[in-house]
């Protein structure tokens, strides 16, 4: 295993000036694993903790609990300096293509930053060559190095961000909503590039997105999150083909189909009510306030992740009662 996390939790201190503070549990009890060259998709709605989880896995957000192993070595509790040494192998691509590039640096300087940190002895000329090669690898002219980020379109800026992430040939790249800010017509370009790079360089991805159709394209495994908890995880085809958790099913059912004939006559089952505040999540099953199947025990006991099929894990008391293949839940 490249990366393995058990019962990971991340807490943020919110509000409270000098004295009082409240804590928000952004990720709670998340377990996952990722093998070399694989892609773990993380899906869920805004605020469910996807980004926080992705950042925590590479040391950009502090873990409050849990065990994290990178190539077998424990890395939870590592100091900032310890993490810095690992950054050669762990990189990230951000959601905001322009915002993740320093406006006062040339594209070349931004892409070269990891090189400057990890291979400071490299000559200027050698560094320039490496930057040029990497830019060309992501589909930009080598001459782009001398220009500034604001001269490029969103899709091109995302390519620059990807070039910076792969210039050291890392082993894991966290992609946090890498195509969400892009026009539909160029989203595919970036997804295809990521796929090629994975195959060429043997990268592994943690691919975070709220767009289920995009996640499906790249992932080998998928994790579904809700309010900081993992609801379901498993091989891609199982999650998309035989979703078991009520939340996963409703999430998949909500995705619109670009066909007026179908879309207009469709009835959906959607989560009722509103997303509870992450500051005071429901006890028991966090999804129970919106779940059409919720019953008394859902409030009493928190469902643990249990294996429904090899590698396919789900946190729900009643998953067996909802026949697979059907998209309408049985009566309450």
């Amino acid at each position: 295993m490249l990366l393995e996390g058990r019962d990971l939790a991340v807490r943020y201190r919110v509000s409270g000036g000098l004295l009082r503070s409240r804590w928000l549990t952004a990720v709670d009890g998340a377990s996952l694993s990722l093998s070399s060259g694989g892609t773990l998709g993380v899906v869920g709605e805004s605020g469910c903790g996807k980004s926080t989880l992705g950042r925590a896995l590479i040391g950009l957000a502090p873990l409050a609990a849990g065990e994290l192993r990178w190539q077998g070595q424990r890395v939870d509790g590592l100091s900032a300096r310890g993490w810095r040494r690992l950054r050669r192998e762990l990189q990230i691509v951000f959601q905001d293509p322009l915002g993740s590039l320093d406006p006062r640096m040339t594209v070349g300087q931004s892409v070269a930053e990891p090189l400057a940190v990890f291979e400071p002895s490299l000559s200027r000329a050698a560094r320039r060559t490496r930057v040029g090669e990497t830019l060309e690898r992501v589909g930009l002219p080598a001459g782009a190095a001398d220009r500034y980020p604001h001269e490029f379109s969103g899709g091109q800026c995302q390519r620059i961000g990807i070039a910076r992430a792969v210039i050291l040939k890392p082993r894991l790249v966290v992609c946090d909503e890498p195509v969400s800010a892009l026009d539909v017509s160029v989203q595919g370009q970036v997804v295809n590039l990521l796929r090629e790079l994975r195959d060429d360089l043997g990268l592994a991805y943690l691919f975070i997105s709220h767009n289920l159709a995009v996640v499906r394209h790249l992932s080998t495994e998928v994790v579904v999150m809700y309010l900081g908890r993992v609801m379901e995880s498993g091989p891609r085809d199982a999650i998309y083909g035989r979703p078991l958790h009520p939340y996963t099913r409703m999430l998949l059912d909500a995705v619109p189909v670009a066909d007026p004939q179908i879309e207009r006559h469709r009835t959906r089952t959607l989560p009722s009510g509103e997303l509870p505040s992450p500051l005071s999540p429901p006890d028991g099953c966090v999804f129970r306030t919106r779940c059409p199947l919720a019953e008394a025990r859902c409030a009493e006991r928190r469902p643990l992740l249990q294996e429904a099929a090899p590698g396919h894990r789900i946190a729900c008391h009643r998953w067996r009662e909802w026949p697979t293949g059907l998209n309408t839940p049985p009566d309450r």
Partner: peptide
């Protein structure tokens, strides 16, 4: 971009 710099090491 500052977080990106941190992530770059």
């Amino acid at each position: 971009f500052v977080e990106a710099a941190v992530a770059s090491g």
